Amino acid sequence: TLKSGALPRDALDRIKRFLAITGSPTEAIQQLRALAADARLDISAAIDALEARTGFMAQRGIDIAKVRFATAFGRGLDYYTGFEFELHRPDNGDEPLVAGGRYDGLLSQLGAASSIPAVGFSIWIEGLAQSSAAGQSPRGRAS
């Protein structure tokens, strides 16, 4: 769709700019606020929620400077409905040690009468054991 020219040029440029946002959560929030102002988009509630989540993590001792945020990041599973994350070793950018996120709609897709708040994650034990043996701590990536 993006390549077919079906979207107006300004909309395509905004989407590309949005998908290029990456960096620390603080940098990403600044980029998101700038995009929202330039494009006259009212997405302040979503940006405020990201900023609050980042503050929550920082208050609990997570070094936010080591976290990477990317708007183009996604786990590729359609049941996720919100925050998604991966933890990686610093020397292994593609293979996660831990990955997960929110999937509030999953149980209703499986037959529950309504959405049920849910968070889950997977841990790759072998990779985590190798990382621990090497004395490395994971770094995070989120969307």
Rank of each mutant, 00 (worst) to 15 (best):
D38N: 11
A37E: 14
T26S: 14
D42R: 11
S115T: 15
A99F: 04
I116H: 12
R102E: 04
A6P: 00
A6S: 13
F121G: 09
A49L: 12
S24E: 05
S4V: 09
L19F: 03
F73E: 05
A72K: 05
L106Y: 02
R40C: 13
Q30V: 12
A72Q: 10
G120H: 06
G111P: 03
G105W: 00
K16N: 14
G5P: 03
I62C: 04
A99C: 11
D10M: 09
T54D: 04
A99G: 11
I15W: 05
G140I: 05
F73C: 05
I47K: 08
A37F: 01
R89V: 07
P138M: 09
G140H: 02
E84W: 01
G127A: 09
L12C: 11
Q130L: 14
S143M: 08
R68C: 08
L12A: 15
S108C: 08
T1D: 14
R60W: 04
R17Q: 12
D48I: 07
T54K: 02
K3A: 15
G74E: 07
A65M: 05
M57L: 15
K3V: 14
A37P: 02
L41S: 10
D104Y: 01
L87Q: 03
D10G: 07
F18D: 01
K66S: 12
H88W: 04
R33L: 12
G5H: 02
P8C: 07
F83G: 03
G82K: 03
V98K: 01
I43K: 08
L106H: 04
F18L: 14
L106V: 05
F56I: 05
Q59L: 11
A129V: 15
L19S: 08
P25Q: 08
G55R: 08
A46P: 01
L41M: 14
S44V: 14
P8K: 11
D94M: 12
V98L: 12
D13Q: 14
Q30H: 13
A34C: 02
D42K: 11
L128P: 04
Q136A: 14
D78T: 09
R102K: 10
R141I: 09
A99E: 01
I15S: 01
